[in-house]
Each structure stands twice: as structure tokens, then as C-alpha cells.
Simulated scan of single mutants.
Amino acid sequence: MRLKLILILCFLQMQSNFLDAQGINNNNNVCQCSEIGLDNKWAEEEKIICYKIPVPGNASNQKETFLMAVAIAKSTRNTNSSLLYLHGGPGISTLSNLPKYLKSDTWKKLREQENLVFFDYRGTGFSEPELENFSDSVRRFSMKNADPIAQHQFRISLIQDYRNKLLAEGINLNDFSSLHNANDAEAIRRALNLTEWNVYGVSHGTTVALQLLKHHEPTVRSMILDSPFPPNAPWVDFIRPFNEAFIVLEKRIENDPDYKTEFKDLRKSFAHAVNRLNISPAKINISPADSNSTYPFTGFDFAWGIWQAMLNPKYITLVPLLIREIEQGNDQLLFPFTSLFNNPDQFGTFSPLQSLSV
């Protein structure tokens, strides 16, 4: 992590030497930070400027506009260079993470050299249009019906209903894509009177960054692609990266005598745990205050949580023990597990409809 930060800072320093003087001096779209989900007092103390910037709703109708929630953390050294951050996801808001980001050593270092530009992608967080979150409806249905096929059919029916409702309001889910997000970023750059900027994309944000480079290349001074998702790969292909991460975990176990003795066949244990939960889902109490608010936790839920855990260096060492415990039926561990790794908002407020549209 430290080496990656050093490389990023060196790269941006080289690029910023060539930047023209440029200002974030358009006040027409400035708003109270509380209007885009940020505390006004905190924003003032942290020298955050907030905007609601109009962007075209789609290419064919320039009159229809959506307001994008944008926040800029001014450089702590008053530099003129700007860095656009493109968040992962899709479906995850950016600004809900901003207080956490600005506390980190990485972003503190970046902020020394750059004015940091953050925005919520269309349909997420406080950027328009507001898309309904059907997660609670799915959860309530799942509490009454543990059949995965019935849950899937219910989810599809909900999505179709929401799609038809949005079409009646003049909103087409085809207008939610990585290209649209890139075009929104370009509209934001123009509104902020920036000649060009450095771009830092992470995970899904790298696909947005590549679209930005493809369609608006003259405005991109430099670009960093962190944990890129190949543009030609199927978007829902999480099986291959999951397997690659699991192989790394297995190799580390193989090279550690104690772990090798303790966890002889982790892959088989994982398969047993997933199969057990798919056959007989565990009942997870969502609300401790309501003993009837239980959710059927399946093997697919467990697999997704393990995937999230393997992405976190803080928790990956616990994965072998967790797999073994769940294989052996120690389901009391699942509640804290779901709180950590199966919360859809763990990386920022989540919009399932925007995610599916992208």
C-alpha cells in the first residue's frame, strides 16, 4: 500500500509540473453541502466546496438535465492541479465515503498536491434522478419465502415494475452506463472551468475512466487505473477473480506449516459450507429488537461474503477459520459476518437499480 501511494504521488507530481493555471471558480452551481448529504460545519472546517451541477440526461435530449452532486476538497497547499476520483461499484455513491476518505493518509497526501473532485454517479447518492431502492422489498419477501427461485422471480418482477414506472416518468435506464458517467464527468469539468485534470479510477471506476479517455482524451492530463476491470470481460464475471483470490489464499496456507496442518482442504470445506446453507439456509436475525425479523442466509450469500472478506487485507487471514466454522454448523458467527461483509452499503450507499442498469 505504501509503495502504491509513493508511485501515485510521484506520477502526479511529474504531471502537475506541466499543468496550466486553472481555477475552480464557477460559483453558479455552488450549494449548501447539507443538500448533498454532507455536514455543513464539517465541510466548512475541511474546506469543502459543494455543487449541484446540471448535466444532459441523454445525448438525444440536451434539454433534459440531471443535477450531479459534486464536492471538491481544496488542496492543502493551494495548488492549481485537480484530480478527479472515479469510485467503484457500480451503484455505490461516492460522497457518502468522503469523510472517511479525507481522514486516510493516502488522501491526505494526494490532497497536498491536488484539488480533489468527487461526485455521485447519476442515480446514486444525491445525484439525480433518485432511483428507488428495492432491497427492503426483496428482504421482506425473502423472510417469508426461502425458495431461491421464488426470490429471483420476485426480484425480476420488481425490477420490471420499477423500469416501467421510470419510463412513464421519462427516465430510461439505458441512460445509465459507464459512458454516461464519463460524459457526466466531462460536463462537470466544463462547469468547474477546468482546462484538464488528472484522473484516478478504482475498480468499476476504471471503466468510467477509460470511457473518459476514449471520448474526452484532450482533457485528461494523466490517468491512474487502480484494480482495473477489463473492459472486454463480462461484467458479472466474479467467479474468475474469486477463484484467483482463493488460489492465492490456498498457496499461503500451503507455505505456512501451522495453517497447512489446520486447514488441509479449504476448497472442499468451502463447497460443503455453501451446499449446506443452500439446502438449509440459516436464519439471521436482522433486528435484535424483533425476534421475527429473520432473513434466510443461503450459501450464495456466504460465498459473496467470503469474496468481500478476501478483498480486505485486515480480514483475509480469518477466512480459513470462518469457512471451517460454518462448514461445521457454527452459524452463530453468521450475524457478525453479515454485518461486516454482506452489507450492501459497506462501500457507500448502494443503489441496486443503478448497479443493474450499468
Rank of each mutant, 00 (worst) to 15 (best):
K4E: 14
L5R: 13
I8D: 14
C10M: 11
L12G: 07
L12M: 05
M14Y: 13
N17V: 02
D20Y: 00
A21E: 07
G23D: 08
N27K: 12
N28A: 14
Q32H: 13
E35K: 15
I36M: 09
L38I: 07
A43G: 11
E44F: 07
I49T: 15
Y51Q: 06
K52Q: 15
P54K: 05
P54F: 03
V55A: 11
N58V: 07
N61I: 09
V70Q: 03
A71D: 05
I72V: 15
I72C: 02
N80E: 02
Y85V: 06
T94R: 01
Q113E: 10
N115M: 01
L116E: 12
T124H: 08
S127N: 08
E132A: 10
V138R: 11
N145P: 08
K165I: 05
L167P: 06
L167G: 04
A187E: 13
E196W: 00
W197L: 08
V199A: 05
V199I: 14
Y200C: 07
G205M: 02
V208F: 09
Q211F: 11
K214D: 08
H216I: 03
E217L: 06
V220E: 10
R221F: 00
S222V: 00
P241A: 01
K251S: 02
N255A: 11
Y259T: 01
H272G: 00
A273Q: 09
V274R: 15
N275E: 15
S280T: 15
A282C: 07
P288G: 05
N292F: 10
N292K: 14
P296K: 05
G299P: 13
G299A: 06
W304T: 03
W307D: 13
K314L: 09
L322G: 00
L322A: 03
I323K: 10
G329E: 10
G329A: 05
L334N: 03
S339D: 10
D345G: 06
Q346E: 04
F347Y: 15
G348E: 01
S355W: 00
